[in-house]
């Protein structure tokens, strides 16, 4: 084999992000098999991974994992560039925007659940905004707000609890302490 002239340097950061993204993608694919009463009402299990990454390594890593998850999830499910893909992207963008702020909340008062619920509401906010602007240009979509908001509250809480449990375990597990995130 001809040796490549381009050498890609894989840093420790890249490996870590790839691992977490792989876990998030696996959860996305597993979740796609679950039946849903209404398109768009999904637990969003991959967000557990995004939360764990956010709280251990900061917003930049979380954004990488989230966007890679949406891209690769779209590829694997055959949804790339379909409306569902753009809705997922809008949701991810909305929640990342809120996470950028929420990550600065004082940790002694606010745990993973608060951040998770805020991100879940931002997620449906981003999705509804895109749906209103592009897919269903009628105010009728807002009649679904209570359904989506309830789902965001419930699944945001559950995902946050799981992430809190994982973070507690990570704090106890041996190994070098994660770098202080902003």
């Amino acid at each position: 084999m001809t040796p490549s002239t381009i050498e890609l340097v894989v840093t420790e950061d890249d490996r870590r992000i790839a691992r977490y993204a792989a876990a998030a993608i696996a959860l996305t694919v597993a979740e796609a098999a679950l039946p849903s009463p209404l398109p768009g009402v999904k637990p969003g299990l991959a967000n557990i991974i995004v939360l764990v990454v956010l709280m251990r390594y900061g917003w930049r890593d979380a954004a990488w994992v989230s966007v890679l998850r949406v891209l690769a999830g779209g590829l694997l499910l055959g949804q790339l560039f379909a409306p569902g893909f753009f809705l997922a992207l809008a949701g991810a963008a909305g929640s990342l925007a809120v996470l950028a702020v929420a990550v600065h909340l004082p940790r002694c008062w606010f745990g993973a659940v608060a951040i998770s619920v805020l991100a879940a509401f931002a997620h449906i906010g981003g999705q509804l905004l895109l749906a209103r602007l592009w897919l269903v240009p009628h105010d009728g979509v807002f009649y679904l707000v209570p359904v989506f908001a309830t789902a965001a509250l419930v699944f945001g809480t559950v995902n946050g609890l799981v992430a809190a449990r994982l973070l507690a375990a990570a704090a106890l597990s041996p190994g070098p302490a994660p770098p202080e995130s902003a």
């Binding site: 745990g111 993973a112 659940v113 009649y143 209570p146």
Partner: peptide
Amino acid sequence: ELKAGDWLVLLLGSIAVACSCALLW
């Protein structure tokens, strides 16, 4: 696992859900 701020966010979230139901339906 829930801290004080978590309860606060959950309370505000529940209020937001209830308001959205009341306003839209």
